[in-house]
Amino acid sequence: MRSDFRDSAPPAFRCADLAKIYRTGETEVHALRGVDLVIPAGEILVLLGPSGSGKSTLLNILGGLDRPTSGNLFYRDLDLAAMDDAELTRFRRANVGFIFQFYNLIPSLTAEENVRLVTDIAEKPMGAADALALVGLANRRNHYPAQLSGGEQQRVAVARAIAKQPGVLLCDEPTGALDSSTGVQVLETLAEANRTLGSTVVIITHNVGIAAMAHRVFHFLDGRIARVEVNEAPIDPAEISW
């Protein structure tokens, strides 16, 4: 069923000749150099590459946190490269969930209250309690971040991201601060969001083993996509060799 969905759905993102140049005085840093990319809807994708290869720059541009210097970028039929700041804010709010290496939870709020920060502003959210149940934390909803393990805090961050039922989840090193067992738990919650909600999941990681759970793997080098691997048989996160 999931395969049929992916085959019939239009791409989530389409990039053509996408470039990003950062300028400081007379110095130019070419973070992206003519990236051509199609991200199918409903898939899990992993971006691999050394630091400074352009992965995070691309993720920020896909999520509407940054703008390309040149090139074309579409989310479904939305022209992101042509949007102004207010339009990009609406795009993020309606379509994108972000998950980062650090959890960014509010210490004075419970797990459920942290998730409700998103459900209060999202267009069609699920209930905060339902989002926590989806990541296996229904019994921890009234706990504060200090009462949760690192893996549990990251799963609250995942619940917060998926509570808006986004079309895409953008994850920058989501397991980077975790040990192998808690990292696998977080990856399982991302895979569950992909299966249950149909969200397209894009994961930046330095952990090559995580690529085995992806439908596609994009290898970055010097601001370009060096190669793309298509994985016909993604494995369950529990089977990943950490």
Rank of each mutant, 00 (worst) to 15 (best):
I121N: 14
I121H: 11
I121W: 11
I121P: 15
I121E: 12
I121D: 15
A122L: 09
A122F: 08
A122N: 10
E123K: 07
E123N: 02
E123F: 07
K124A: 08
K124T: 03
K124S: 09
P125G: 10
P125E: 12
P125T: 07
P125I: 03
P125H: 03
M126Y: 12
M126E: 09
M126R: 13
M126C: 12
G127V: 05
G127C: 02
G127F: 02
A128K: 10
A128G: 13
A128P: 13
A129M: 05
A129E: 00
A129H: 01
A129K: 00
A129W: 01
D130C: 14
D130H: 15
D130G: 04
A131C: 06
A131H: 10
A131I: 13
L132A: 06
L132M: 12
L132D: 05
L132C: 03
L132P: 00
L132T: 02
L132R: 07
A133S: 11
A133C: 15
A133D: 07
A133W: 13
A133T: 11
L134R: 01
L134E: 04
L134W: 04
L134D: 00
V135L: 06
V135T: 08
V135R: 02
G136D: 04
G136Q: 00
G136P: 00
G136L: 06
A138M: 11
A138H: 03
A138L: 10
A138V: 00
A138Y: 09
N139C: 04
N139I: 05
N139P: 09
N139K: 13
N139V: 00
N139F: 14
N139D: 13
N139Q: 12
R140M: 09
R140K: 12
R140V: 01
R140P: 09
R141P: 13
R141Y: 14
R141D: 14
N142R: 14
N142G: 14
N142S: 12
H143A: 11
H143K: 02
H143G: 06
H143V: 15
Y144H: 02
Y144A: 01
P145G: 09
P145Y: 04
P145C: 07
P145V: 02
P145S: 03
A146W: 06
A146N: 01
A146M: 04
Q147I: 11
Q147L: 14
Q147N: 10
L148P: 05
L148Y: 04
L148Q: 10
S149G: 07
S149N: 01
S149W: 02
S149T: 07
S149L: 08
G150H: 05
G150L: 08
G150M: 07
G150E: 08
G150N: 04
G151I: 00
G151Q: 10
G151M: 14
G151S: 15
G151V: 11
G151A: 08
G151Y: 11
E152A: 03
E152K: 01
E152I: 00
E152R: 05
E152S: 09
E152H: 07
E152V: 00
Q154E: 15
R155K: 14
R155G: 13
V156R: 04
V156Y: 00
V156L: 08
V156Q: 06
V156C: 09
A157I: 13
A157L: 14
A157G: 14
A157Q: 05
A157D: 01
A157C: 13
